[in-house]
Design a protein around this nucleic acid. Sequence first.
RNA 1: AGGGAAUUAGCUCAGUUGGUAGAGCGCCACCCUUACAAGGUGGAUGUCGUCGGUUCGAGCCCGGCAUUCCCUACCA
Length: 890
Amino acid sequence: MELPDRYSPNEVEKRIYAWWMSKGYFRAAEKSTKIPYSVILPPPNVTGQLHLGHALNHTIQDCLVRWKRMSGFNVLWMPGTDHAGIATQSVVERELKKEGKNRQDLGREKFVERTWEWKEQYGGRIVEQMKRLGDSCDWDRLTFTLDDGPSKAVRKVFVDLYKKGMIYKGLRLINWSPQLESAISDLEVEYKEIKGSMYHIKYPLADGSGEIEVATTRPETMLGDTAVAVHPEDERYAGMIGKQVSLPLTQRKIPIIADTYVDKEFGSGVVKITPAHDFNDYEVGKRHNLQMLNILNKNGTLNEHGGKFKGLKVQEARKQILVDLEAAGFLSRTEPHVHQVGHCSRTGGVAEPFLSEQWFVKTGPMAANAKRVVESGTTVFEPESWTKTYLHWMSIIQDWCISRQLWWGHRIPAWNCTKCDHITVSETDPAACEKCGGAVKQEEDVLDTWFSSALWPFSTMGWPGDTELQKTFYPTSVLVTGFDIIFFWVARMIMLGMEFKQDVPFRTVYIHGVIRDAQGKKMSKSLGNAEDPVQLIEDHGADALRYTLMAQIAGGRDLKFSTQRLEGYRNFMNKLWNGTRFALKGLSDFEVPADGVNALPLKSELSDPDQWLIYKLGLVEKEVDDALKSYRFSDASNALYAFVWNVFCDWYIEFTKPILAEGSTAPEKKATQLVMAQVLNRIVRLMHPFAPFITEEIYQKLPIRGEALIIDAYPTPKLDKAFLALGSEEVALELDLVREVITALRNIRGENRIKPGVKINARLAPKEAKEQKILGANKGSIMTMARLETCEVGPAESLAKCAVQPVMVGGMTVDVIVPLEGLVDIGEEVNRIRKTIEKLQRDVAGLTQRLSDKNFVANAPEEIVTAGKAQLDESRKQINTLEGALARLM
RNA sequence: AGGGAAUUAGCUCAGUUGGUAGAGCGCCACCCUUACAAGGUGGAUGUCGUCGGUUCGAGCCCGGCAUUCCCUACCA
């Protein structure tokens, strides 16, 4: 079968993917005798576009899933998308803005309707992009976080936790985004360094006996001050504790209190306390029962407590207040100050600590469980180093603020009575207050998006129903994710999984790094350095992109993306393609054996290259098997790269060219054809998880194949035992000697500028009968591959002028000799031999030193010492030979 | 401030149990040798950040230092 000489991924990938889908190969069986293997896809935002981070994350999962599917597991890769409360709501609000409207104009119901419409129209985009990458998810089970199933789970969990007293509503200081007019979680606050000022303000004592100086970066918060604090042991202020201070501008009287929170050494040792707008002050306020004076509106403007500054935004109020303080002589000095300011990670605006009524999940008891299962190894982190980070975070975890003042999301299933103050929390919408029967009104807030995500491992499997799916696939096998959401997501899934399923959600958490650009900068739209994976797939193919990513994943470290590297792996795909193309030519008259993949040649019929190739195949199968089992993706893909390119294409194909040439009647032809067909078959099977498309395409053209590669068996040393037994380490070593001899001849040619067209004569001088025999058996290959006119195997003769290169492999030695009469400029060869001698002399010097060290000889393992001695011996002999050759040349 | 990681060829990085360093890209030379120029053959390049320790032997183990990065927490 003829194939084009360039592989063009585009058409192939789309066709193959559609075919896989039509055959239902991605489907998981609810019940099966096979061992289950399950992975839940971290659901991307419906608003999202596939970026390289997804590509990395998904490629890892798809590789694992395909590997396990081929290894005979019943595989479920559960796909889904996330409603992404803030992100999605923002997108729709932006659309409305273009129409000159806002969400309030539409009202809640219409707005949510409109958002659903948006989701239906655009929410499938990222799913289509995932398919381009080759994701073999069980698409029939694609779930959206707002679907009925997950929504029921959300309600059930909320109600249960509420009834257990683990969800409560309370007035708390939380992080607030004035842009969103919503609470955000602590984890959604990003601290940025801001160059601001430190303002020193004089607070006069109320009794007129003096003044006290405070320092602040946020002077406007003085409107919410309800105390001034000093350290209890600070002698400077001992007499003032208990007195009152008259707050500048408003003359409000507030007390001076003592609290150890204050650092005597810092600044003036006096701190203004604003419990409603600072987390530390909030704690102080609670300890001292201070009034919590909230000076802000939801939109970040000052409220009625702002007095004359009411209605101003924080920044404007700050300016005004400073002007007034200055004018009134309260501002003693201002100095530049760099400090960290919390920003809303969603909008980029400044986040404000804000006192408000919110819903919380009590995390203490669940966190204890979630710590325990990781400490005991029920769930393990890979790489292991993340365990520490996880445990540390779990030990300082705060209660989780789960309410958001948004419209898009799971509305909190709590109803406030209009008559009494009872809250009815229920899985189904209640008609009336469960206590007094009065009319009820549902909470306006929705739940944090991560609340539904935390239930994802079981809510996607039909929970709270008692489904087969859960029995088969929960706990899942592995979760693959970036470290940035260990706390947002991983920890919460473990907590809620333990609480509601009494079991961990996954056995292993595989944490990968993030993708950076070639310079090591984080990729982001705003930096303009984000590569679009879909475009990369269009240009170079999904297989090349996947391979580029896999080849660089090592130990959870970040990886740098470069198109140069991508092109390299694109070339590799082409290499595989062409290698196959050529191999198939040699198999045109191959008689496909009836027992297909189990057909074995007789060992006695195998050539040295055959046995060498099969031996190397065994090594790569073991390496890939080991590497995949321990998530060493780069090791696996690099081993395959080297095998395909350097072993199969560079040598085996070259060795077998004469045998498989058109019209060849070589006696070993049949055996070689069978080996070629079997190895090709195994190459694509081994490579399939890394490069699924091209391998399936090739597989379908192979003489030995099954129905589909995606469901064929994954080769392992165990599975391939009978075939691999045909390989031989000893023969492999012998063939390595042959390869080295060929390389030496090529080296002599190259260094001496012998034109490729010129055929040369060579004499190969073996050390012993063993080498003699090997060279004799492979003389034909040597002559072809080194382009020799004549080749004599026998003892070195004293030829007048010749190039000499000793070759050593596994204790075997051959001197490669090429007479140079009339061929070249002798000077080149003199230099070449001198360089070789120098290198050997360095070796000899090093070895001599070591071997003369009594301690080394006494302590080093015997095999190291004997090997060293043999090496020394051999190197000395070679120096002799070379010096002889050199003398004749001079 | 605390915790973690990194430092190996010009660039990007491998190097799993300690035995005198590897890949890809780039570079140099030669080559359209009928699978592949997205290719072939050959070649050059490293006191493995630094100082010390353990050891017969250290890129690898231990400690100090330097530089860089990340995470967590932040003093008004």
